[in-house]
Design a protein around this nucleic acid. Structure first.
Lengths: 301, 301
DNA sequence: GAATGTGATAGATGACATCTATCAAGCCTG
DNA sequence: CAGGCTTGATAGATGTCATCTATCACATTC
């Protein structure tokens, strides 16, 4: 049985005339006669009583036509819903973001995203890199904003912008007197985030392993770390987008001699079909952040 | 779009594996891949994200699959309902019957019909010949039991049994002394039904036109006529099946010399598709009435 | 009785679903 | 890490079947 045949039934039932029903269906009258007869043979039931005077639905047809209408209506609904879904820049877009980026980046890009992609419902999901990647692979996220390189064979990514790190110092710290700070000089009293945050690893990689203070402090968020630094408990590196929040907390910021930093990338499954949405979101974020990293630090692990 | 394709979608969504879905659908894996891709192109929406590891429905697929399920379910409903409707000996069967036949025939054949054709819901419709034929032509009846010949090009019929007429006399009537009555002898004081009843015309045809009494009496039913005869108001012809009722009313019955009578036929539209039901009903009635007309009077107009 | 209108039939044709054979990519194991 | 296994994609051949045009058969109408 075929949806086409079902539409033929409806046409005949409506016009009660093979010629006009065929015309309305865009086929010839013989085709319609043959197809209807085949369908009747398939169903084992006569659907219309024909004569040269009139075409009248049988009782069996009356019983069936409700289901026929419903089937055709559902098929049409599929087409019409698909039409609205056709735009890859529409619908839910679940975007994972790491915690050291989300609170500072989202306020910047939310309005531009909404303006550029009004039909795209961007749903941010804040979590650590490994959890985000898991969810990405499990199709529970559509894309993610990460600061690590991890193109596996199943994932693809594209850099959006370079984010330099800055030295975050208590105002009374000796290094605060310098205009530029050497990364290694921070190692002595550096504070880092709890395990799992990529910024922790990147900070330690840039400054050299110390972890004397980092081992005792379990800072789950960057803002905790900032407050600790402001209180004179130690120093740290912060990503450039957090500069505003750090200064608000009363922290002294200094550029780094080796221009350590990280590159924020958008990551997606290589097979993800809505590549257009990924590119569009990436474009908007990259445009908003253009010119942010004058230093142009790139690609720390 | 095709129902087959929709079933493919459901198979893939269920198995999440092209090979197994193809096997379950009874086709090869390449066919399934090609068909799904074509459907995706038609809809303009990716339905599944494929990799050699997993096949995952897209968000668009999740939105659509409800309609897909509904469409397929309705199509299945068509097939299943058609299967129950397939038996022509099942369902409503609207049967017109003339008033001079219905009250005497129906009690005889109702039980045999029910036993022989338990799935056929015979709905008797009592009316005069012309009204019945109109309803038959208007598809408001499926068949009719008539006592007249009227095979037009659009109607067909088949004789079921011959029903002899009997002379109905008041007990004190002079003719009641005879064993056999000549049809013409009844003409003087014969009573007939109101216009429109075929029995009226048949009676007048058999006995010769008189109508002196018939003109003043407007008897709408045979039982009225019987009561008039019993009261000595006149004589009449009655169809054989009414003999029992006539005798109960205290009427004397006598056979007719020329064996006037009528043939009861089942009539249907020549194009009516449930010919099997017509034949089956006719068979049951003819079998029940077999041996009824020993005289074998046939075919008065 | 010719003209008109109706659905059914016959034979030709083209589109397309399907097949087998094969490839490309990724995963697992020894 | 190489080779085998699994998975979906691709290519080319093939047969089915929907569709067409031309025509018929039948009934109605003027």
């Amino acid at each position: 049985m075929n949806l086409r045949d079902l539409r033929y039934i409806l046409a005949i039932a409506e016009h009660r005339h093979f010629g006009r029903a065929a015309e309305a269906s865009g086929i010839s009258q013989p085709t319609l006669s043959v197809q209807l007869r085949k369908l009747e043979e398939l169903l084992g039931v006569a659907l219309f009583e024909r004569s040269s005077k009139a075409v009248v639905p049988t009782a069996a047809c009356e019983r069936l036509i409700g289901h026929v209408r419903a089937a055709v209506a559902e098929a049409d609904a599929i087409l019409s819903v698909a039409l609205t879904l056709r735009d890859p820049l529409a619908g839910r877009f679940r975007l994972g973001i790491i915690p050291t980026l989300a609170p500072y980046l989202l306020p910047l890009v939310f309005a531009p995203l909404r303006e550029a992609l009004p039909a795209l419902e961007v749903e941010p999901w804040e979590d650590q890199t490994s959890a985000i990647v898991d969810r990405l692979r499990a199709h529970e996220l559509d894309a993610a904003l990460l600061a690590t390189d991890l193109d596996g064979p199943d994932l693809a990514s594209r850099p959006l912008f370079a984010e330099p790190f800055l030295a975050a110092l208590p105002p009374e710290h000796p290094l605060a007197a310098r205009a530029v700070v050497e990364e290694g000089e921070l190692a002595r009293d550096i504070l880092v985030l709890a395990e799992g945050h990529c910024l922790r690893d990147q900070t330690l990689a840039a400054c050299g392993q110390s972890g004397a203070l980092g081992g005792t402090l379990r800072a789950a968020s960057l803002s905790t770390l900032l407050n600790m630094v402001a209180a004179g408990y130690g120093t740290t590196l912060i990503p450039g987008l957090a500069a505003g929040a750090a200064q608000d907390a009363g922290i002294v910021l200094r550029p780094l001699a080796a221009q350590a930093g990280r590159t924020v990338r958008i990551v997606w499954r290589a097979r993800f079909p809505r590549r257009g949405a990924v590119d569009a979101v990436g474009d908007v974020i990259a445009a908003r952040l253009r010119g942010f990293a004058t230093g142009g630090a790139t690609g720390a692990v």
